[in-house]
């Protein structure tokens, strides 16, 4: 693997290698000095065509802890037409000698276009593309689950994880279904039928329309952000009805196993898919997900950017 474009790029051993490396990185982050010289002299570009302060900051913190030079390039709202700007921007960054491009884009597949097109020779890392994938989010989720439920080692076999909400439009769900099942977990997707993509039966996951019947069996429940505007496209009747059937609240919290954890990739719509009480409860690991995000992204940057590619052009094998 040379780029990280999709969770399906990862083999089982590569995924574990990233999680294990992230665990080492987490230790560094816990120490008194949080900076490593590993990527000194390397240039990493945060190329964001879509606003996402939290993801950008997380990658920026990861790169800086590894001493890379970070350039933030926000292409949103640029006057050039969408299509031209990706190619032109890639060529500009190539000329600037970017070792890695972390790209966030509202078009599904834009990172792969960047990696395949020949416009740049940089390592490309997908920081979320349209409704396609968000592989580092899935890695940090897997890392968080492993830390809490598998004492931080090995894979996720034996665990059952529910992903609840707008699966149809969720890149986080797509990456997580692939990665969590690769690592041996059982994934259950819970959503109204309108928010499940056609052909979801072919995914390595079970499907349920009923949250209450699923909650007693899960080790982790991952709530996805649901945008209010979706009801204007007839995905559900009202926000109130959505919360009633698919929101995580105090009553549903009581259905969970004592050991089960609550996750959310953020940003949350408190009161819609999750109540404040649940988000802030002792079982919530939502804040910790953010910290783990930095460790996981440090691991990805180290494994993909620090070394020279091997004879097959692979960085992580």
């Amino acid at each position: 693997m040379r780029h990280l474009l999709s969770a399906s790029d990862l083999t089982y051993s590569e995924a574990l290698k990233i999680l294990d490396t992230a665990a080492q990185m987490a230790r560094v982050s816990e120490g008194p000095v949080k900076k490593l010289p590993t990527l000194r002299g390397r240039t990493i570009v945060n190329l964001f065509f879509e606003d996402s302060t939290r993801t950008r900051i997380s990658f920026e913190a990861a790169a800086k802890r590894l001493s890379a030079d970070v350039i933030n390039f926000s292409a949103k709202g640029s006057s050039v037409s969408k299509g031209e700007s990706l190619k032109d921007t890639a060529q500009t960054l190539q000329a600037m000698g970017a070792d890695a491009i972390i790209i966030r884009h509202d078009s599904s597949g834009a990172p792969q276009r960047l990696a395949d097109s020949g416009w740049t020779s940089s390592v490309v890392i997908n920081a979320g593309d349209g409704t396609h994938e968000h592989p580092t989010q899935a890695l940090l989720d897997a890392f968080t689950i492993r830390k809490h439920l598998k004492v931080g080692v090995g894979d996720l076999s034996g665990l059952t994880i529910a992903i609840v909400g707008d699966i149809l439009h969720s890149r986080v769900a797509r990456s997580n279904v692939t990665l969590l099942s690769l690592l041996g977990a059982q994934v259950i997707l819970v959503a109204p039928p309108t928010l499940l993509p056609l052909g979801v039966e072919s995914w390595p996951a079970q499907i349920s329309f009923e949250l209450d019947s699923v909650l007693p069996y899960v080790d982790a429940v991952m709530m996805l952000r649901v945008q209010q505007e979706r009801m204007n496209d007839f995905f559900f009747p009202t926000a109130r009805e959505y919360s009633h059937y698919f929101g995580l609240n105090a009553d549903r919290l009581a259905l969970l196993k004592p050991s089960a954890i609550i996750m959310h990739p953020g940003p949350m719509n408190r009161g819609l898919e999750i109540t404040a009480a649940c988000a802030d409860s002792a079982r919530s690991v939502i804040v910790e997900q953010v910290a783990n995000g930095v460790s996981v992204r440090m691991a990805v940057l180290y494994l993909l950017v620090a070394g020279a590619p091997d004879e097959n052009g692979e960085s992580l094998a």
Binding site: S108, G130, T131, H132, R171, P197, L198, G199, S202
Partner: peptide, 18 residues
């Protein structure tokens, strides 16, 4: 819509064309 609605569009996150 971007491509045929089906298993592939669902995985790619491209809006389906039924």
């Amino acid at each position: 819509s971007q491509m045929n609605e089906g298993i592939i569009s669902s995985r790619l996150g491209l809006k389906g064309w039924p």
